[in-house]
Amino acid sequence: MALLEVTGLKKTYTTRFGGAQVHALVNVSFTVDTGEYVAVMGESGSGKTTLLNIVASLDKPTAGIVYLDGLNLGVIKDRAIAAFRRDNLGFVFQDFNLLDTFSIKDNILLPLVLANVSYDEMESRLTPLAHKLGISDILAKYPYEVSGGQKQRTAVARALIAKPKLVLADEPTGALDSKASDGLLKLFSEINDDGQTILMVTHSVKAASHAKRVMFIKDGMVFHQLYRAGKTTEQQFSAISDVLTAIATSGERDA
């Protein structure tokens, strides 16, 4: 069953001083099933972050509908949207977006606190999760005291603690060194193996090669899809590279 269904998505920005219209998304339709691990790839400006923002209900589409678990995001009232996001979506950002006024623990608990969960419940969810992510010993520290990889794992913990239906990751490895990236991608795969649906936006071939499916976006449209289907990470890596080369040399791009 499709957890996420996107049909005919279109997003047009008007530049501030009127005039030129920018078509970030032209016509995007795809579905993500429960338990899938999908990477969205594309060059800068291809519209992938816009897509993620719309799915995350941080932005509204010009046209088209996004269904999450059968629910039309467009009809949720503004007031309820924050709560909806809190309960159904988890976020992992490129620059972690941790709050420097909170300790690691409090950063992780933030969504639960906002959802008014009891403290005992928070504790019971936090302990196994922190253990699994290997951040149990830094819980009392503050974001500026830990490494980038630890920060990103904190962000993952924060995304997972509310038990969301869908985890959205925006360039999660963008600000990490290669070792920390490897760790994080391994972690994502593990989480996915546990049944967590993940939608990741990236332009790192390596990150995408870990996903079960790669979706290529170009000029606001889904250009191509690639299923891993039993291939090794290395094989997938070269397959993705081929597609990217094809995109870059296709000549259809406006200069």
Binding site: I81, A82, R85, N97, L98, L99, L114, R158
Partner: peptide
Amino acid sequence: RRFEIMQQVGMTNSE
């Protein structure tokens, strides 16, 4: 920036 992040993790505008 802080409030931006909080809105992303599910804090409402009125909050």
